[in-house]
């Protein structure tokens, strides 16, 4: 709560001009008939999708060229709020010209980004992010009808927060890597739970398969178990051979450090290790975006050192080559 939260009724102030424009003048609203598809020698797909909790429903039409599998035209009908209509309009537009396989990769976040006026300002207020999720689901439905497979085929990982599209594995990783202890921290790190809030705990706007409260509790328990195991390994670190130590450092780098760097297009490599006066000197070399990045000598460098001392041994000193 703060100054900006004190006066209500600000919902529409946070809609982008593009959302307003699409709501007032939808471009791709309409239907495609069998006859129209037949003239173009295309296959007509009509996909219906509805979200019970929203009372929203959308019907997506695709005209697909059977040779190239390119969606040559797309239209929709939508029963829903303003943002649902605007999202459906952009969804249809984004589908046109893509192959079915490409279209399936469109997410609700792509739809929301396409509705932004400027790259850094969200197109809709947080609780309305949810409205674009349906637009994304109906694409999967259309693709499943075209390919005659089940919709779940297109979901390769378990999505916990649909609004921000954060997967179960990402949330678990982030909790472990950053030693997160609260839901607020998870939201800060991943944006999961920042929008419609359904995924935080049962009883929200929409029923979910996974809730952040459960994931946090279970992952914390896992961390505690792992700590016990690490404790034993750590005891023995001083007695390990240099090769064993090197392997352990490599393991921690691979599991806890590389995922963070990869997210920004960077990487790091362990070049050498030496034992000096009771210290373990680790020599690293940055790759990719990390090489030359200012943070590689400040924030990133700190993170690597802290992570290795915490997860491997206090004797570690990191040197950049």
């Amino acid at each position: 709560m703060a100054k900006n939260d004190l006066i209500g009724g600000a919902l529409w102030e946070h809609y982008s001009d593009k959302v307003s424009d699409r709501m007032n003048n939808p471009r791709f609203m309409g239907e495609i008939t069998e006859e129209e598809a037949a003239i173009k020698g295309a296959k007509l797909i009509i996909a219906d999708y509805g979200a019970d909790s929203c009372g929203d429903a959308v019907r997506l039409y695709w005209m697909v060229d059977p040779e190239t599998e390119i969606i040559i035209d797309s239209k929709y009908k939508s029963f829903g709020c303003g943002t649902a209509i605007a999202s459906s309009d952009v969804t249809a537009e984004l589908c046109i010209g893509k192959t079915v396989d490409e279209a399936v990769k469109i997410t609700n976040i792509d739809v929301e980004k396409a509705l932004r006026d400027t790259p850094d300002t969200p197109a809709v207020p947080p609780q309305k992010m949810h409205c674009s999720v349906m637009a994304y689901d109906v694409i999967k439905k259309a693709a499943s009808l075209y390919k005659q497979v089940d919709m779940s085929v297109f979901e390769d990982e378990e999505i916990v927060c649909e609004c921000a599209r954060v997967s179960l594995s990402t949330i678990k990783d982030v909790i472990k890597l950053n030693d997160l202890k609260t839901i607020e921290e998870i939201t800060q790190y991943t944006k999961a739970g920042a929008f419609c809030k359904s995924c935080i705990k049962p009883g929200g706007h929409e029923e979910r398969k996974f809730y952040l409260v459960d994931i946090l509790r279970d992952t914390r328990a896992e961390i505690e178990r792992e700590k016990l195991n690490f404790g034993e390994e750590r005891k023995n670190f001083a007695e390990m051979t240099l090769i064993q130590k090197h392997k352990m450092v490599d393991k921690v780098v691979a599991e806890s450090i590389l995922p963070i760097l990869h997210a920004d297009g960077g990487s790091v490599e362990i070049v050498d290790m030496k034992e000096v006066d009771g210290y373990t000197d680790v020599y690293i070399s940055y790759k990719g975006a990390c090489a030359g990045c200012a943070a590689s000598r400040t924030g990133t460098y700190e993170v690597i050192g802290v992570t290795l001392r915490k997860k491997v041994d206090n004797s570690i000193r990191v040197n950049i080559l």
Partner: peptide, 24 residues
């Protein structure tokens, strides 16, 4: 017609009404 969308259109025409729609 979903309530928030309806309220939006009415507002464009200068009409003030009220919806209890969840989406609003």
């Amino acid at each position: 017609i979903e309530g928030e969308a309806f309220l939006w259109d009415l507002n464009q025409k200068g009409i003030a009404a009220s919806t209890g729609s969840a989406c609003s």
